[in-house]
Design a protein around this nucleic acid. Structure first.
Lengths: 109, 109
DNA sequence: GTAGGTACTTACTTCGCGGTAAGCAAAAAG
DNA sequence: CTTTTTGCTTACCGCGAAGTAAGTACCTAC
């Protein structure tokens, strides 16, 4: 029973930081290269500024991404992945592969 | 841009069938051996009968688990994993490992 | 009869995530 | 001055997932 709970607990931890509607998309976009707030908005159609802002802050405090401010003329902010974030992106990929294998065929949503 | 969206889409499909608060726990319990409704209730403390019932039906219609009714004296129903469910359980495991590595240390929730 | 076990099933409420919309502050362009 | 761009930030609302509680049906044990 001991490692049964541990396993689901680890997954719950992972879910807690990635389960949002847009977090995986954000993680995926940033994994390619560091991105600015406005770039993310344009790369992820449909996300609102509020939600993007909220998720970025949540992911930052969860240690998935880094926020770096550059003192430049128009204010410039870049978001990049931490090692934890990059590692989570790989795990997300494993789940995504499952989705492609078992869902895209029988469920065309 | 094309395979960017595909990747998150596959993950969204996976999330759709596993993102519930209790589904991973149910999947994990069943992956050990076929379980009955009452066994699941006792193995997953805190889950309500309504939610267990709802999640089981959802996971069944999503093709993760099989429901088998035995015509016995006290009515007997067993839930077991399908191949898709077993495969998803593996993917969940990968995420759970991430959770253990990067979360259980720095965040003791 | 009552109590208990199996396996649901329904009604109602609550709470948080996400959506909509608007405001804010600084700088540059016109 | 107004407008636009960048990067947030806040207020408010709605819906759906989950929680609470109770009911149903069938059988067994006492």
């Amino acid at each position: 029973m001991s490692h049964h709970q541990l396993s689901t607990c680890g997954f719950s931890s992972a879910l807690g930081v990635i389960a949002g509607k847009w977090k995986a998309a954000i993680l995926w976009q940033i994994h390619c290269r560091p991105l600015r707030y406005g770039e993310l908005r344009r790369l992820i159609p449909g996300i609102s500024e509020k939600v993007l802002f909220e998720q970025l802050r949540a992911m930052e405090s969860d240690g998935l991404i880094q926020r770096e401010v550059f003192n430049e003329v128009p204010s410039r902010v870049e978001y990049s992945l931490t090692s934890a974030g990059a590692s989570l992106n790989d795990a997300v990929h494993t789940m995504a592969e499952w989705g492609r294998k078992y869902r895209s065929e029988d469920t065309a949503s």
